[in-house]
């Protein structure tokens, strides 16, 4: 039982980071109809930006905020420089261009920071709480709570503020939005900026948990199953699916894999089930696509033709 609880806590912490990344993907998709492969790259860039700022001696809060600002700029620039010229290009071309961005961002970080993992300066206080047999570092608690709060805050912003309303209008029907005087292309830029800033924060949080390396960009690939499971155009779905997937992965690592392996080792010649948690999101994704293609929270017909 303590093991399960401990696993759940670990899963929620990573899951909330997945959720932040997935939120960004959904946001961009809603506003511009683009599935952004570079979301993982934004997370990585955000983490490196925080690292540079922290190393320069900025206080943690300022550094993280500043790196989010930088990432917002990067996001807006991507939209203006790369995506806008491709407004009429076919879907495959747009997807590929974001993949190109991912490759470029990784290569740029490789050239500047080198291939090795870098120690991330402490953002949260060192130490751990231990209650009821559960052992959780402050790092974990802080990252998890911060990610969860921000995700919720973002949902509220989207649902309650005038800007959120304009965003939703632009996303739902860009012509109607234009007709009532919303500057749609500015809204699209804003969506990219927000999405990149969210991803940048997620990257920074992930770096506090996992250290700083180029591998941070891989989280984008985990986020795709998350958004599909949640429903490609549902922000709430991304949040819930992110948390669920984080917990499921953690349980797979800590409970399911050992249990399966115990059974297999006792009864068959098979000794290992491999890195099961790595395929779990994709297996879920396939299942979801077969049973309910619109995702947990998606509405039918949400997919674009």
């Amino acid at each position: 039982m303590t093991l399960a609880l401990q696993l759940a806590v670990a899963g929620l912490a990573t899951g909330s980071v997945y959720a932040l990344i997935a939120l960004g993907i959904v946001l961009i998709y809603k506003c511009s109809g683009v599935v952004n492969f570079a979301q993982g790259a934004y997370a990585m860039l955000g983490a490196y930006a925080s690292y540079v700022l922290l190393s320069a001696g900025l206080p943690a809060v300022l550094a993280v905020l500043a790196s989010m600002g930088v990432m917002a700029g990067v996001g807006a620039l991507t939209e203006r420089l790369v995506l806008r010229p491709m407004l009429k290009a076919p879907v495959v071309a747009v997807m590929m261009v974001t993949l190109g961005l991912l490759i470029c961002a990784r290569a740029a970080c490789l050239a500047v920071f080198g291939p090795d993992q870098i120690a991330f300066p402490p953002v949260f206080p060192e130490g751990a709480v231990s209650a009821g047999g559960i052992f959780v570092t402050y790092n974990y608690i802080a990252a998890g709570i911060l990610a969860a709060v921000l995700s919720l805050g973002f949902l509220l912003f989207y649902a309650r503020t005038p800007m959120g309303l304009m965003q939703r209008c632009a996303a739902d029907n860009s012509r109607a939005a234009l007709a009532i005087g919303i500057h749609v292309s500015n809204q699209v830029s804003a969506a990219w900026a927000m999405s990149a800033a969210l991803a940048g924060l997620a990257g920074t949080l992930l770096a506090t948990l996992n250290g700083l390396s180029l591998g941070l960009a891989d989280i984008g690939m985990v986020a795709f199953p998350v958004v599909v499971v949640g429903g490609l155009s549902s922000l709430e779905g991304a949040l819930v699916a992110g948390l669920v997937l984080g917990v499921l992965q953690s349980f797979t690592d800590g409970l399911l894999t050992p249990a399966l392996e115990d059974v297999l080792r006792a009864n068959t010649g098979i000794y290992s089930v491999g890195a099961l948690q790595q395929v779990l999101p994709y297996a879920l994704l396939v299942l979801m696509l077969l049973l309910r293609p619109q995702g947990l929270f998606g509405r039918r017909g949400a997919e674009r033709i």
């Binding site: 990573t14 992930l206 891989d218 690592d253 409970l255 050992p258 000794y271 890195a275």
Partner: peptide, 22 residues
Amino acid sequence: VDTVEFRYDAQDLTGQLLRVKS
């Protein structure tokens, strides 16, 4: 008592280590 496999580019092994701890 156990062998534990993980992805070579894994960034997070918390679940695996909880298993090891158990």
